[in-house]
Write a protein that binds this DNA or RNA. Structure first.
Lengths: 193, 193, 193, 193
DNA sequence: AATGAATGAGATTTCATTCAT
DNA sequence: TATGAATGAAATCTCATTCAT
């Protein structure tokens, strides 16, 4: 008989199976039995590990957010200069999306039940507010609105790109997102002075 | 006894009830019987007007897209100059969102089954391509990516704003979206020359 | 095709089927599908009429209590004298048990979820309190306790008797319950004076 | 680390946990895993000690019946005179209920699967039959019916009282049960002679 | 045409029991 | 011997759809 998998492995298998099925057919069209079968475990095991399929989706969100936050912090510290930092953050996101396309698809298509699982807009908003004080922000740009704008733009563009990667090159995606980042949109003027 | 309604009125009632329920609890958590009851008609009548709840959701998308396209064309023709045009288009979207918050919520939270029901990115993409040829586009900005970026940013910001209108003033939302519009993000440099 | 039954008839069929199955195998060993099948309707119909099987059990309680109250009031008014009244009430209960043995079995074996569905002890308690004031109650007898005692004794004896009717004659059951009724247990002494 | 318990101690822990959970939420709403967890042992251990939760419930019945029988025999021998004997038996029951309210709740709410586990009515019935022969039983009272009547009345009153102890004093409960005992209900007349 | 009770396939969820560790 | 994760049969419950009225 096959070696019994550890609870951790079973959870991981459910996690992967859930990500794949949710990505393929959506949350609504997937049921817990399908996930269990795809993970190679019994139905009951699904419920030992997750309250229901929404809890699994939440876990996918949490995991995604966690990894993205960790890598973003690392990348921001390593980069030098505003534009380099922005580019580094965008690259982190693009890398993660290419690394785990299924998970990104799920995270991107299904809002989490608890907004707490969304990546906080706070850090970006604070950074933009500092730039505003220093007169480095384009006129009319509100830090809070701009922070949300960038988050939505990045998520939207990445989802659109992954849906059909022939729509744009990886370079074009990155450079466009960098160029449109609120912290840099006003830069042009400054650099000309 | 309630006045007998015309088929057109019944359809309208189902449309409104669907928009309200989808907005309140989401597409997945709403069923056709609930919509019929909320609209004050029998379940059977629901199926006379819509194939199923997804068809109603599609109709909401189609309707939204249609109105937005009409108003946008009008506004674009009336405005003079690039910035005025962009601002006019953003204002049209903001007005529509404020006019029909429920419908916007549905359209914004649930992607249409047929992408054909989404507003085309083509016009914006073409306009940006023209600017690029004229050297008026910020360097690094890809027209196709930027068109999607703006659509996502506008939709994301408006959804975030309507979720809690105290997050920003209407002015801040409009001005930020205008300032971050790809066609204008490069403008700063140009105007300084 | 068979004539469609009215909702009332369907509910009645479920009621009867539930009473029978609960009586035969108990509440825990009966499921809603079995009740529906036994009633000759689909599963969904069960849930249209009752929230779940416990709600059906509650309805059986309510119905039983309602009928017993009505008949008891009638009987009490028709009877003359304390002993005649007590005997009339006991006979009403015995008659009902013989009329609907299944329902009695259910009511007797499964306490209702909401105690409100139990027959109130209040009327008996009040009557006993009056007798106490008049010195007609045996010494040591507390009206509230005695009211409960009689209710429990009657229910217990009837359940025991119906379980195996050869255990006692109907007469013996009635006469014993009458003789042990708290209002009469003290009578012996009084009548001898 | 917890001290390793002996099999006997584990069984005792399961017994107590089962009594508590059955009393709190009922037999149907409790499962073996819950009992094991509450007892601080693994699920597997539950099945080493009891076939299933019903077997545990049966053991509670058996235990209760056993203790009650022992104490009743002792009390009956120690008491002098019919009334004293009856009072002694009632007190034994009341004491036991107060000592183990949880177990009483279980025993009282759930009939045993095998009736053999119920306390036999035979001794009381025989005693009443003797009194009948001696002309000491109230007219109309059937020994078998009366034996069951008393058992039901005592169980019912005690359950009702423990459900809300403010309903009556311990004294009132005892005295009422004694006064209504079939062997004494007829006494009034006799004692007056 | 309109109604809404009825339907049953299927999704969700529980839990007694097993068995590898 | 004790453990508790795993299991899957079975119960509960939902809801899109039908169809007699």
């Amino acid at each position: 008989m096959a070696k019994r998998r550890s609870p951790q492995q079973v959870r991981e298998a459910l996690f992967e199976a859930g990500a794949r099925l949710f990505a393929e057919r959506g949350l609504a069209a997937t049921n817990s039995n399908q996930i269990a079968r795809a993970a190679g475990v019994g139905v009951g095991s699904f419920y030992r590990h997750f309250e229901d399929k929404h809890a699994l989706a939440d876990a996918l969100h949490e995991d995604w957010t966690h990894i993205l936050r960790l890598r973003s912090q690392e990348a921001a510290q390593a980069a030098d200069g505003l534009e380099a930092q922005v580019r580094a953050l965008v690259e982190v996101a693009v890398d993660l999306v290419e690394e785990h396309p299924d998970r990104f698809r799920v995270v991107s298509a299904h809002p989490p039940r608890r907004p707490a699982l969304r990546l906080s807009l706070r850090p970006v908003e604070k950074r933009l507010a500092e730039l505003e004080v220093q007169g480095e922000l384009a006129p009319g740009v509100d830090p809070a609105v701009a922070a949300k704008a960038f988050e939505a733009m990045q998520a939207g563009v990445l989802a659109w790109w992954r849906e059909d990667p022939s729509r744009a090159t990886r370079e074009a995606v990155i450079e466009t997102l960098v160029a449109l980042h609120p912290a840099l949109a006003g830069r042009a003027r400054a650099s000309v002075r």
